[in-house]
Design a protein around this nucleic acid. Structure first.
Lengths: 209, 209
DNA sequence: TCGTGAGTTTACCAAATGGTAAAAAAGCAA
DNA sequence: TTGCTTTTTTACCATTTGGTAAACTCACGA
């Protein structure tokens, strides 16, 4: 036993471990986000990762562990924009910046968005604890912040909870319902710009004191 | 062969046929909306319907036909509020009425909302044709109507396509992401009222000329 | 170069799942 | 009742799927 390990319970992951675990997770993100948990198969993930199925199970104990690992890893990234709502900043600028960043996330990381959407749609069976422990505290904190801005008259009177949910809904819509958006608005590039402008207008008008 | 049938290719469905097909579709709506297409099993549907699996396959040719039948039947109901946007009505009242009806649909028919959400999330593999032929024409028509209202100065200048998508996103969010909403806002009754008030305020401010 | 542990493959398996065949039962008109 | 159709059940089947055992290969330090 090398005493190089800082943690007594875990061994250091080898270079090849890191690389292959990454490959599996990348492939799994593709497959899970497209088909949902039950619709995805280990064979699909294996093929996408360029590894054999038993090889994948050498790195992860099972399908569920892959899924949970993905959800946990992405949670932080996903909450990052909300966490950056700065109490010291200008309320309107902070909130519109949040809207913009959230839309940007949908544009850059649609798979991540759909992975979460799938999970929530099915009742969050594998994520309920993380919603309670990770999302809820942050959500409550930022609701209080927005409430204080509202109370101070720095933005219009607004229900913070439903404001945040509206921001989520409108921005994530473009990733989660992409198949529908594509039918109704085929010009992809222009559509993102128009969406950004629309959301900025909408939330600016809503928040103008 | 009874000459009672009006259509030469189809026989009249017996009373028991109608009843049992209905039971299957009701059960399938439960199961599909909760688990998605691939996550749902015929056994689950059979148990929910109180019928045996082969019995279900006596009424429907397979899992896919049940799913497609559901989607087709629900499409009309789902588009109904949009279809009722009245060109002769007051623009603001019409649009806010649309928002209210759409939210009401989410409250009363969350399963239907989630069924569609599941289908779209996975790329609408079984509904793409219906989006083109059913949704798109109506969408384009109503976009033109809103554009004309906007041009006439009866509502603020707004991008009709993204306005409608925002209405969809915000209202359906409460059904599709119910599992998340429930964690963040446990008081269900009050939450629907607050959601309604929030959405009315938001879209009124957006549309005020 | 040789041994050892990390990594990979081959060959499986048991359960789940969509679906079928055919017999049995239930309606129902005469 | 008799005979016919409609409906339901029983007993299967082939495929898919998550997962395992064990043999095998490979990298690498002594």
């Amino acid at each position: 036993m090398t005493d190089e390990a800082t943690d007594s319970t875990k061994r250091k992951p080898s270079r090849i471990q890191q690389k292959n675990r990454k490959r599996v997770l990348e492939a799994a993100l593709d497959v899970f986000s497209q088909h949902g948990y039950r619709g995805a198969t280990l064979d699909q993930i294996a093929e996408a990762a360029g590894l054999s199925k038993p090889n994948i199970l050498y790195y992860f104990s099972g399908k569920e562990e892959i899924h949970v690992t993905l959800l946990n890893r992405l949670m932080e990234t996903w909450l990052d924009p909300l966490a950056h709502l700065d109490p010291r900043g200008d309320p309107m600028a902070e909130l519109l910046g949040y809207v913009r960043r959230k839309l940007e996330m949908s544009r850059l990381y649609p798979r991540e968005s759909r992975l979460f959407a799938n999970e929530i749609l099915q009742g969050a069976p594998r994520m309920a604890p993380h919603l309670e422990s990770g999302l809820k505290p942050l959500f409550d904190e930022k609701c209080a912040l927005i409430q204080s801005w509202s109370d101070a008259g720095r933005i219009a009177r607004v229900n913070p909870r439903h404001l945040i949910m509206s921001i989520w809904a409108t921005s994530q819509h473009y990733a989660d319902f992409e198949a529908q958006v594509r039918v109704l608005e085929p010009e992809t590039d222009a559509s993102w710009k128009a969406a950004g402008a629309h959301l900025e207008t909408m939330f600016r008008k809503l928040l103008q004191p």
